[in-house]
Simulated assay, not measured.
Amino acid sequence: MTAFNLMHCQPDSRKLVLWAARQGWLPAGGDLGYALHAALHRVFGERVPKPFYFRDARAGLLAYTRSSAEELHEAAALCAAPDLADALGLDAGPRSPGLGVRAFPLRWSAGRELGFEVRVRPMRRYKAEDREHGTERDAYREHEARVEDEKELAREAVYAQWLAEQFEATGAAKLIEARMTRFQLTPVLRRTQSSEQQGGGGRKARTIIGPDATFSGHLRVEDTEAFARLLMRGVGRHRAFGFGMLLLKPASISA
Results as ranks from 00 to 15, higher is better:
residue 212 D to L: 09
residue 192 T to L: 15
residue 232 M to L: 14
residue 9 C to I: 03
residue 121 R to Y: 04
residue 22 R to I: 10
residue 58 R to F: 13
residue 51 P to W: 09
residue 200 G to Y: 11
residue 16 L to M: 11
residue 126 Y to L: 11
residue 130 D to Q: 08
residue 33 G to W: 04
residue 40 L to H: 04
residue 14 R to T: 13
residue 94 P to D: 13
residue 244 G to Y: 05
residue 135 T to G: 14
residue 96 S to G: 05
residue 118 V to A: 02
residue 29 G to F: 02
residue 174 K to L: 06
residue 166 Q to M: 12
residue 129 E to H: 13
residue 73 H to Q: 15
residue 241 F to S: 00
residue 232 M to W: 01
residue 196 E to M: 14
residue 248 L to D: 12
residue 201 G to S: 09
residue 163 L to G: 01
residue 103 A to P: 03
residue 163 L to D: 02
residue 231 L to R: 11
residue 131 R to D: 10
residue 101 V to I: 15
residue 221 V to Q: 07
residue 106 L to Y: 01
residue 201 G to C: 00
residue 47 R to I: 11
residue 38 A to K: 12
residue 189 L to W: 02
residue 251 A to E: 07
residue 59 A to E: 13
residue 222 E to Y: 01
residue 197 Q to I: 02
residue 54 F to G: 05
residue 170 T to S: 14
residue 52 F to N: 07
residue 169 A to L: 09
residue 237 R to L: 05
residue 179 R to I: 00
residue 215 F to P: 05
residue 8 H to W: 08
residue 45 G to D: 14
residue 223 D to S: 06
residue 134 G to M: 04
residue 204 K to N: 04
residue 167 F to W: 04
residue 73 H to G: 01
residue 199 G to I: 08
residue 192 T to E: 15
residue 200 G to L: 12
residue 181 T to Y: 00
residue 233 R to T: 14
residue 163 L to Y: 00
residue 154 A to H: 11
residue 235 V to S: 01
residue 104 F to D: 00
residue 74 E to G: 07
residue 144 E to M: 13
residue 241 F to C: 05
residue 67 S to P: 00
residue 130 D to V: 07
residue 10 Q to S: 09
residue 127 K to F: 08
residue 44 F to V: 10
residue 48 V to H: 07
residue 127 K to R: 15
residue 103 A to K: 06
residue 59 A to M: 09
residue 199 G to T: 10
residue 5 N to K: 03
residue 74 E to P: 01
residue 133 H to V: 01
residue 19 W to Y: 14
residue 87 A to P: 07
residue 129 E to Y: 11
residue 206 R to W: 04
residue 85 A to N: 02
residue 201 G to H: 05
residue 199 G to H: 00
residue 40 L to K: 03
residue 164 A to C: 07
residue 49 P to N: 12
residue 150 E to A: 14
residue 72 L to E: 08
residue 206 R to E: 15
residue 133 H to Q: 10
residue 228 A to Y: 09
residue 171 G to H: 08
residue 122 P to S: 04
residue 40 L to A: 05
residue 148 E to V: 06
residue 124 R to I: 14
residue 63 A to Y: 10
residue 201 G to E: 10
residue 90 L to C: 03
residue 120 V to I: 15
residue 214 T to D: 06
residue 76 A to Y: 00
residue 91 D to H: 15
residue 24 G to M: 02
residue 228 A to I: 04
residue 220 R to C: 11
residue 132 E to V: 13
residue 125 R to N: 06
residue 168 E to H: 01
residue 65 T to N: 08
residue 221 V to Y: 00
residue 138 D to E: 03
residue 223 D to C: 10
residue 104 F to W: 15
residue 181 T to L: 01
residue 28 A to N: 10
residue 42 R to C: 13
residue 199 G to W: 12
residue 16 L to F: 04
residue 70 E to S: 13
residue 47 R to T: 12
residue 154 A to T: 09
residue 185 L to Q: 14
residue 246 L to D: 02
residue 166 Q to E: 15
residue 140 Y to E: 02
residue 173 A to F: 02
residue 182 R to S: 10
residue 8 H to I: 12
residue 255 A to K: 06
residue 45 G to I: 04
residue 236 G to Y: 05
residue 112 R to Q: 15
residue 212 D to G: 02
